[in-house]
Design a binder for these strands. Sequence first.
DNA 1: CCTATCATGTAATCCGTTACATGATTAT
DNA 2: ATAATCATGTAACGGATTACATGATAGG
Lengths: 192, 192
Amino acid sequence: MDGAKLSPMSYITLGLVELRGPSTPYELKAAINESIGYFWTFSHAQFYNEPPRLVSLGLMHEERERDGRRRRTFSITDAGREALQRWLAEPIAQRREMRDEGMLKLFFAELTGVEEIEELRRDQELRHRAMIAELEGLHERFGARDDLGYRTDTIRWGLAGERALAEFWAKLKVSPAKSRRLRPTRRRSGTG
Amino acid sequence: MDGAKLSPMSYITLGLVELRGPSTPYELKAAINESIGYFWTFSHAQFYNEPPRLVSLGLMHEERERDGRRRRTFSITDAGREALQRWLAEPIAQRREMRDEGMLKLFFAELTGVEEIEELRRDQELRHRAMIAELEGLHERFGARDDLGYRTDTIRWGLAGERALAEFWAKLKVSPAKSRRLRPTRRRSGTG
DNA sequence: CCTATCATGTAATCCGTTACATGATTAT
DNA sequence: ATAATCATGTAACGGATTACATGATAGG
C-alpha cells in the first residue's frame, strides 16, 4: 500500500520525528503542546495510537526498552520521509473549514435572547483576546529566532486570524430586532 | 439521561429543524450546504445517523412514510427545544482551535524546498481569495435581509477570518535561509 | 427509452476520544 | 513516608467518514 491515505495526525507524527529525531509518544506530545498545540490538539492516547499505525505501514520503526519502563521509541524510515516529502509538495486536497462553535451559536442566535447573545459576543471577544496575548508572548520570545524555520510564521498566522475574529466579535451588533424568541410560538402554515 | 453530551452536529440538527420545521435528512443537508456548509461540512450519511440518535434521546420525533419512498421526517420535541436553548445560553466549553492543513504544512515547511513552499503560499492565498469572493457574493445577496437573524453576521465572520489569512499568506516571506533540506543529511549526534 | 443526476438509506470502517490503570519521580 | 504529579500504556466507545446500494425524476 503506497497511496495509503494518511491523516493530519500521521504527518504531524512523521514531521515531528523528522524534526526531533527518534522520540517517545510522551516527547511528541510535549513537543506539540508548545507549538502546533496552540491551534490543533490531540488526546495523549493518539500519540500512542498513531505511531504503531505508521509502523504497520512501514513509515516508522519502533524500538522498545527491555527494562521496567518498556518505553517505546519511534523513528522515521526512508519510506516515512518520502511520504512526508510527498505530502509537503502536494497541494491541499479539500476545502478549508473554519469549524467554530461560536460561529454555530451565532448562526442560531435568533432563537435565543439578547442577553445570551451579548454574553456570547463578550465571551468570544475575550477568548480571542486571551489567545492574542498568548501568541504575542510567543512571538516576543521566538519571533526573532532564525533556527525555527517557518514555525515562527505559524504564530503570525494565528495572530492574524485571532485579531480579525476579535475585531469581528467586538463590533457585532446585538439587537432584539434580530431575535425570534419573543414571538408567539410559531406553527408552520404552509409546506415545510 | 438529561446531561447527555451532544455534539455540534446534534445542535446543528436541532437548530435547523427548529428554524425550518419538520425536515427530512436530505432537506437538512441541502439547508446546510448553503449556509453553515461554507465553514463546516458533514458527510450526507451524518444526516441519517444523527437524527435517529436524537430520537433515541427523546429530543426529536420521527415519522416515516408508508409508501414506496419510506422517507423519514424528523421534528423537534419540547425536550429538544430545551436542549437547544440550554446550549445557546451555555458558555463554550473548550478552547477554540484553528485546525488548518495549510498551517501544518507551514509548520514543517523547513523540511521542503522553496518552490514547494512558494507553491503552498500561492495556493493558500488563492483559496482564501476564492472564499472571500464567494462570501462577498453571499453578502451582497443576503447582507441586507433582515429576516435572517444573525445568519448574515456569520458571513461577515467568515469574511473577517478569510481576509486576515489571505493577507497573511500574501505577505509570507519564503526564503532558502529558512530551509533545512539542502543541508547534508542530518545524523543525530547527541541524545535525542 | 436510456442515462444522468437527484434522492435516500444502510453497513463497515476508522480516527480520535474517554475511561481505565499503573509505574516512576519530586516535593512536602 | 506520603501525596502529588509526571510518565506510560491499553481498552472500550463513539462520532463521522467511505463504501455500498437502490429508487425516483428529468433531460436528451
